[in-house]
Design a protein around this nucleic acid. Structure first.
Lengths: 195, 195
DNA sequence: ACTAAAATATACCGATCGGTATAAAATAAA
DNA sequence: TTTATTTTATACCGATCGGTATATTTTAGT
């Protein structure tokens, strides 16, 4: 890893949480300069534009969320336990201190009408996340844990929308109350899936 | 209504869809000047700051959405029909041409970490919208249309999260497919509420 | 240690940002 | 219609925006 590669990564690491919090338009190069204690020349020596930083910041955040989700899932053995672990991760993601919301939600809402490149990345992240849910359900069906009649894709779409909506509300209200209710509903539904 | 009041309203009317689409940070005063064909001096003769315009724009958008929801609901007689009409409104909101997403979602996501005043307004809008759902359910229970065991508040929270999540996904994907699935799930659930 | 190459810092660019002082024009009360 | 008041347009403010040319420093291969 060359110096430049390390610096690039360092800049992304510092910039990502700021962009996730303040938005792409709301974050200035100066914000990034201050956060990294570098200079503008140094930042632009490693990146071509602010847009490139935003794109890599989104990739970085999504990768980190994905890693956290995998780690959470690995704590469960059965499909149901894996789903429970995922739910717990989402809840901790809202109740934890240094968290600024789901990057897929934050970048997606801003990029929707303004940044096609980011929009494409967000769409891929949505599909990936939903397929994580669907794969767990399918594994549970194959192992005999869940009924064969369960629609894995439909559950994934529904659960993802509910959780994203619930996290968004929880962050805005400064309370996990509604997210907890939504997670309870999902757990009850998974309970009904069991045979 | 004085000239100033009319102009204020005119500015908000023109600025609101732009801010809803590009975000508060992403919209410049010049954008508003161009959209209104007024001058900067005229805009600042009627508003103290860009922030004030954003706040009024949000109020305007929420009021309009509320009116559209009321109009949709009035097309139904039973509680179930009213809910169906609401769902249809949300779907048309996504499939329609000149639409740029739910203002509660757009303003909420941006304001969450950057604009406390807007955040307060967004929270009130969330509570109001959820109470619309809850009230319909409660009316249905009182009229004997729905079972007494139905939890109106829980349904409102769940349905709102699902719909907001579903609309967000639909706009990002450029397809109402997942929202339609989510609405179907809700309709099925309401069907189960009937006795 | 020497040196070519890579990375960083300084200083600056024009454009645009939100906002304002002031003059010109339009409104509204008399 | 006159006149005081309100509203609008012009021209400008300093600050900050994203971005760059260039000089200086640091890195890394020999």
């Amino acid at each position: 890893m060359t110096k430049a590669e390390r610096t690039r990564h360092f800049i992304v690491e510092k910039a990502a949480p700021i962009i996730n919090r303040k938005g792409m338009a709301g974050t200035s190069i100066n914000d990034i300069v201050e956060a990294t204690s570098l200079t503008k020349g140094s930042v632009y020596g490693n990146f071509e534009s602010k847009d490139e930083i935003c794109l890599e910041a989104f990739d970085y955040l999504v990768k980190r969320v994905g890693a956290d989700m995998s780690q959470a899932m690995s704590r469960g053995t059965t499909s149901r336990e894996k789903l429970d672990a995922l739910f717990s991760y989402y809840i901790s993601n809202v109740t934890g201190e240094n968290n600024y919301g789901c990057p897929i939600m934050n970048f997606g809402t801003e990029a929707d009408d303004t940044n096609p490149a980011v929009k494409v990345k967000v769409n891929k992240a949505i599909v990936n996340t939903q397929s994580v849910f669907a794969k767990i359900i399918r594994a549970g069906i194959e192992s005999g844990e869940f009924k064969k009649t369960v629609d894995a894709d439909a559950f994934a779409i529904k659960a993802f929308a509910m959780i994203e909506g619930g996290m968004w509300i929880a962050r805005l209200q400064g309370s996990p109350k509604q997210l907890l209710l939504i997670i309870d509903v999902l757990k009850q539904e998974i309970n009904d899936y069991c045979q």
